[in-house]
Design a protein around this nucleic acid. Structure first.
Lengths: 181, 181
DNA sequence: TGCAAATAGTTTGATCTCCTACGATCCCCC
DNA sequence: GGGGGATCGTAGGAGATCAAACTATTTGCA
């Protein structure tokens, strides 16, 4: 997947003289150098949600990168482990990826011997996905990275806020998924 | 910037009653909307953070889609508006996108007459970015969509939790940026 | 002053993702 | 039984993103 290599918001442009006054000082961005003015984005949930997710993703990628498996693979392995025999379409729905996106990924995991794709007896159009022992082992390795990663997130979120934060994320997913206003 | 039309976030948000050991019922995980067991992911911050961000992105894209400009364009316009004269590299750092990603996007915005790229007098390698009147107008239109979008997010988050939620996101961005552990 | 290193922006290549189209298969209902 | 329509997995096209390589320019240091 995407790779880290940070380049976080921060840094200034050589010039950037604010012009017509808007928000007060509203700069931000930690660490030194000249901060940019984020304007409206400064207080926008969506923008910060995106930055946080990308930072989390990059951090996990750094952590699990050496295992040769990426964040997306981890989610797939977990779901297959917990729902042996499921179809590719069901897996895609669970992890939020189109079935056509999974085709090459699953083919590669199969090639590497981490999972099996058996034609489902009940429905010969679909495959029944299951992890091989090697797949279970890979999952275990990734699980250790995932645990460390989430522990890092927990530290940043703060133990007492964790439940509320997670609940808020769930509400966003549930609320934005269907409706639209 | 952001991604393209990445429309469907796809449900997910399982629930899967904990239920003890195993014996996964795995009945009709396939065709049926039967919820899958998310296992470890069920309680993982990173996974839900990703789902929430994708849902938010998709919702904003739906909202502003008709304007012909995408979420990423909005962020770029806001930053340029608030920091006229900044360089492409500085813009990329602010919105979390590589400079090479911005090249075609900015070229298109320029072609559409929304911004100007003037060679910087002080450093002729870089461009000084500024919005044209048309760019300001486009920004105003997108701002309305953004406001509605964030209002929707606010409703889901809950007014009393908003500040804490935003603060948590900021801590994640700041903490994961440099942190390695 | 002069040249090496650093930096801005572009180009190219590799991923990842979605959507649409398509063949194979299943399912409902006449 | 037999079809029409829905669904599964795959293939191909389009867009977004990053990293590395490359050019032009600036800066640092001897």
């Amino acid at each position: 997947m995407a790779q880290p290599s940070r380049a976080r918001p921060s840094r200034a442009a050589g010039h950037a003289e604010p012009r017509d006054g808007e928000e007060p000082a509203l700069r931000l961005l930690h660490g030194g150098r000249g901060p940019l003015r984020l304007g409206l984005l400064e207080n926008t949930l969506g923008f910060h949600l995106r930055l946080a997710q990308e930072a989390s993703f990059a951090a996990f990628a750094r952590r699990s990168g050496d295992s040769g498996l990426k964040p997306g693979h981890f989610a797939a392995l977990v779901i297959i482990h917990n729902n042996p025999g499921l179809s590719q379409t069901a897996l895609g729905a669970a992890i939020g990826r189109d079935k056509s996106t999974l085709t090459p990924k699953l083919a590669e995991l199969e090639r590497r011997g981490l999972l099996r794709r058996d034609r489902a007896h009940a429905d010969r159009r679909s495959y029944a996905l299951t992890l091989t022992p090697a797949g279970e082992a890979a999952l275990a390795a990734l699980t250790a990275h995932a645990a460390a990663h989430d522990a890092a997130l927990d530290r940043l979120v703060g133990g007492e806020n964790r439940a509320a934060f997670l609940d808020t994320l769930r509400r966003l997913v549930a609320g934005l998924d269907t409706d639209e206003t």
